[in-house]
Simulated assay, not measured.
Amino acid sequence: MSDFANEQYLIIQILHLLSAMTFGGVVIFEVLILESLHGRLSKAVMMEIESGIIRRARQFMPIVIVVLYATGILLLRAHFPDLSIMPESIFGRLLMVKIALAGIVFVCFVSAMTLHLLNKMNPLVFKVIHLIVFSCVLGIVVLAKSMFYAYS
């Protein structure tokens, strides 16, 4: 690791974990809790709840995403200044899969924001994007824990 990465590693790692918890928590809440309310509450009430949540999430989620991906890149560079050696270790291979899942999440996030801004978002696309992101978030969490064991 570079001197900067060594000195700042803990701070970068904590910021990464906090932003990952925030992003993942919102996604998990929306998929497991919010989606289950659709059959129990009226359409008007659900629209009010969802629009309030979306409005609030739009205020802080872009910052969370920037922190999450920026710290992820810094952590990647701290562990692998030479990216070509990543496939040589189990840790590196797991990280490559985690990065691929994070890439899918990023594409979904940008797609959702773009569709929303263009007023082209519909409930089916919204649900599909959330399920894809939810699956990727679960995969990332499992990989992160697996990487911990591969590294130690």
Results as ranks from 00 to 15, higher is better:
residue 1 M to D: 00
residue 2 S to K: 06
residue 2 S to N: 09
residue 2 S to E: 06
residue 4 F to E: 11
residue 4 F to L: 15
residue 5 A to D: 07
residue 7 E to I: 12
residue 8 Q to W: 15
residue 10 L to W: 11
residue 12 I to P: 01
residue 14 I to K: 04
residue 15 L to N: 08
residue 15 L to C: 13
residue 17 L to A: 09
residue 18 L to I: 13
residue 19 S to D: 02
residue 20 A to D: 02
residue 20 A to T: 14
residue 20 A to W: 03
residue 21 M to T: 11
residue 21 M to D: 08
residue 21 M to R: 05
residue 22 T to W: 10
residue 27 V to H: 00
residue 28 I to A: 00
residue 28 I to S: 00
residue 28 I to M: 03
residue 29 F to A: 04
residue 29 F to Y: 10
residue 30 E to W: 02
residue 32 L to N: 03
residue 32 L to H: 02
residue 33 I to D: 03
residue 35 E to M: 11
residue 36 S to M: 11
residue 37 L to Q: 14
residue 37 L to T: 15
residue 38 H to W: 11
residue 40 R to H: 15
residue 41 L to W: 15
residue 42 S to M: 04
residue 43 K to S: 13
residue 45 V to S: 09
residue 46 M to W: 05
residue 47 M to F: 04
residue 49 I to H: 06
residue 49 I to T: 05
residue 50 E to N: 11
residue 50 E to C: 09
residue 52 G to N: 11
residue 52 G to Q: 05
residue 53 I to Y: 05
residue 53 I to P: 02
residue 54 I to M: 10
residue 55 R to C: 07
residue 58 R to N: 14
residue 58 R to L: 07
residue 59 Q to F: 10
residue 61 M to H: 04
residue 61 M to K: 02
residue 62 P to R: 09
residue 62 P to I: 04
residue 66 V to F: 13
residue 67 V to M: 12
residue 69 Y to F: 13
residue 70 A to I: 14
residue 72 G to C: 10
residue 72 G to L: 08
residue 72 G to V: 06
residue 78 A to Y: 04
residue 79 H to Q: 06
residue 80 F to E: 07
residue 80 F to R: 00
residue 80 F to G: 01
residue 80 F to H: 03
residue 81 P to K: 03
residue 82 D to H: 12
residue 84 S to E: 12
residue 85 I to W: 02
residue 86 M to S: 05
residue 86 M to Y: 01
residue 86 M to N: 02
residue 87 P to Y: 03
residue 87 P to W: 01
residue 88 E to V: 07
residue 93 R to Q: 07
residue 93 R to S: 01
residue 93 R to G: 01
residue 96 M to R: 02
residue 100 A to W: 12
residue 101 L to K: 10
residue 107 V to I: 13
residue 107 V to H: 01
residue 108 C to N: 06
residue 110 V to K: 06
residue 110 V to C: 04
residue 111 S to N: 07
residue 111 S to Y: 04
residue 111 S to W: 09
residue 112 A to E: 08
residue 112 A to G: 10
residue 112 A to S: 10
residue 114 T to E: 08
residue 116 H to K: 10
residue 117 L to Y: 05
residue 117 L to W: 04
residue 118 L to H: 08
residue 119 N to F: 08
residue 119 N to S: 13
residue 120 K to G: 03
residue 122 N to K: 05
residue 123 P to S: 03
residue 124 L to T: 14
residue 124 L to H: 07
residue 126 F to A: 05
residue 126 F to S: 08
residue 126 F to P: 01
residue 127 K to E: 03
residue 127 K to D: 04
residue 127 K to M: 05
residue 128 V to G: 00
residue 129 I to R: 00
residue 129 I to D: 08
residue 131 L to R: 13
residue 131 L to P: 04
residue 133 V to C: 03
residue 134 F to S: 08
residue 136 C to V: 05
residue 137 V to H: 05
residue 138 L to M: 11
residue 140 I to T: 01
residue 140 I to F: 02
residue 140 I to Q: 00
residue 142 V to H: 02
residue 145 K to T: 15
residue 147 M to Y: 15
residue 148 F to E: 10
residue 149 Y to T: 13
residue 149 Y to K: 14
residue 150 A to Q: 12
residue 150 A to F: 11
residue 150 A to C: 12
residue 151 Y to E: 12
residue 152 S to T: 12
